[in-house]
Design a protein around this nucleic acid. Structure first.
Lengths: 341, 341
DNA sequence: CTGAAAGCGCTTACAG
DNA sequence: CTGAAAGCGCTTACAG
């Protein structure tokens, strides 16, 4: 680090000295609230420019109580849904002049949750947004004290104390399953992603749709979110002869399932139909192109910021987002006559 | 936001009062530097627990000069390489007790860069890490004053003033091209991703390898990083008859290229070989499984944090990371006898 | 070991 | 319009 010696960052007093005015005057120029004479304003601006001054947000936050950081607590940052939601949060935050501080909750045990929450709360936060996509998210949400403003992105409504940008997982599972049933499949198997403690909404929707149709409810297979684990699940599925349609917990898993089935010598959708969840950018380029429940994660992230900043309330509060819809592509089809019998 | 009334967060003085001690004593318990009598320590701990006290990092940063935020300036957060790098940064930061604040540089124009940099510098930063993967990154790096500690993740060495975790793009392009040439292809076409202002290192490596082998250097096709634009490029490539091998700027683009070629009626690798860059998690599940230059982005991110915290210096400083290596899978093969002639 | 005092860099009343 | 003063929540010498 010797390569780049750091100067002491200039502070307000340096600017004041360089401009020949008092400290409060510089502050006024910066905030623009009170009028400042033109000549002083000009001198101050020039001094700021020359010194490369940037106000110290810590000091500012200390006195105004104004916080310019939105904390995000999440179990992951790289998977499609997570990354897109974070992208939406960052966009909305930036346009509100806020920065996004991310803390990953690395595990669901008490220590990890407590450490992550403590780390986040150690910052001067305007509020925190929790991605309640998994257990880590749920635990983090529960561990947050009521001294911070909180909003969540969730698939299930809570107790109403915390505003949530909701995606209607349950409805999605129901719709996707009914679509597959409507194609003529006797039942639909489910390859599940980890839920946030309890069964995921999409799994519940899937189960209810089967029951409502009087279809048998096969035991769901579990994955760890990865395409690889979807692949492994598919290998098990391929050994059975009662499988004609599979609904996957997300698209990455669906990609793995398709590949696994293909490697086992089965054709998708001719032998088995596969549907996913999320509408991953690669879904339309997969072979076959993946039928999936599309969700607008970035919009969800933006809504959460809206809730946090108090710009969204009322009927949008905990109301399911209307952005969920089925995108039918080539990975689903009616069962083959033989299998459908 | 009325759903969840906020209490005023407890401050040190509240804890001191509750524990019946002075403010500095609480501070000492927290920091653990100076000895504090056991009974007072216990009372303080209890008060902290009961009140749910979290120290105000802004106030702490103000007096100690210790900053607990690493700012990350990046052009994107969702694409594989970016997201993985950020993941590595977050991991290393968290284990050092730091939080990661992300600011996306939305565009390369001066206003956008200045706004993003200003937003980031407005925080009490321990330092900033710039992802120099694109023009936005380069511009942001250039716009940073020398009052902040900076590290970058880059593919090209700089002037030595800023520590960079390097990935040797240039070598990667060279190696991948030579591998394809070694298979017997007369030349290799290139579908490029946007560089950071100048041609990307991988493109340079590709070009040099062709020249060194005396192979013709076809004009590269440009994309915007997306699989979709790779698909479009493939459609153009498919119309030519001199294409037998294609090196893509990244895997997402390669996925699109493969799909585009297939949709145009060509077989990969029988008619045309395709190789990518990065080793995206879906590369091994693609059909055909993608041959690609693997890069350990998370490690790059961790190194950048190491540089920033001054834990990494000397020979690792601006030294290419050794993690770049070719992973040969099924998307590449020798040219067909006819085409190779 | 522990408390009173000073100060980090800012902003906000308070006087002029 | 503008400066001197006080204070945000902490930590760090300084005295005891």
């Amino acid at each position: 680090m010797t390569a780049r010696p750091l100067k002491r960052p200039p502070v307000l007093a340096d600017v004041a000295r360089a401009a020949g005015v008092s400290v409060p005057t510089v502050s006024r120029v910066l905030s623009g609230v009170t009028r400042v004479s033109d000549d002083k304003r000009v001198q101050v601006m020039r001094a700021i420019e020359e010194l490369g001054y940037h106000p110290n947000a810590a000091a500012r936050a200390l006195v105004t109580g104004q916080r310019s950081i939105i904390g995000v607590l999440t179990g992951d940052t790289t998977r499609y849904g997570y990354a897109s939601t974070i992208q939406g949060i960052e966009e909305a935050a930036r346009s509100a002049g806020l920065v996004v501080a991310i803390t990953v909750v690395g595990a669901a045990d008490e220590d990890a949750v407590r450490a992550a929450v403590g780390l986040a709360l150690g910052q001067p936060l305007a509020g925190v947004i929790v991605l309640e996509f998994d257990i880590q998210g749920s635990r983090a949400l529960a561990a947050l004290p009521d001294t911070v403003a909180v909003a969540a992105v969730s698939s299930t409504a809570g107790n109403g104390r915390i505003p949530r940008a909701l995606f209607d997982d349950h409805q999605g599972g129901w719709d996707a399953t009914n679509y597959l049933l409507g194609l003529g499949h006797r039942t639909v198997h489910h390859v599940a992603v980890p839920g946030s403690g309890r069964p995921s909404g999409r799994m519940l929707g899937w189960r209810e749709a089967l029951k409502a149709a009087g279809a048998p409810v096969p035991r769901p297979l579990e994955t760890d979110w990865t395409a690889r684990s979807g692949y492994d699940a598919a290998l098990r599925l391929a050994k059975r002869d009662d499988v004609t349609a599979v609904l996957c917990g997300n698209d990455e898993v669906a990609f793995g399932v398709i590949k696994g089935l293909q490697d086992a010598g089965l054709r998708v959708p001719d032998d088995i139909s596969v549907a996913g969840f999320d509408d991953h950018p690669l879904a339309q380029l997969w072979t076959p192109a993946l039928t999936t429940m599309a969700q607008d994660f970035a919009e969800l992230g933006r809504s959460a910021v809206g809730f946090l900043l108090g710009r969204l309330t009322g009927d949008q509060f905990e109301a399911p987002s209307a952005n969920l819809h089925l995108v039918v592509r080539d990975s689903t089809a009616p069962p083959r006559p033989a299998a459908a019998s």
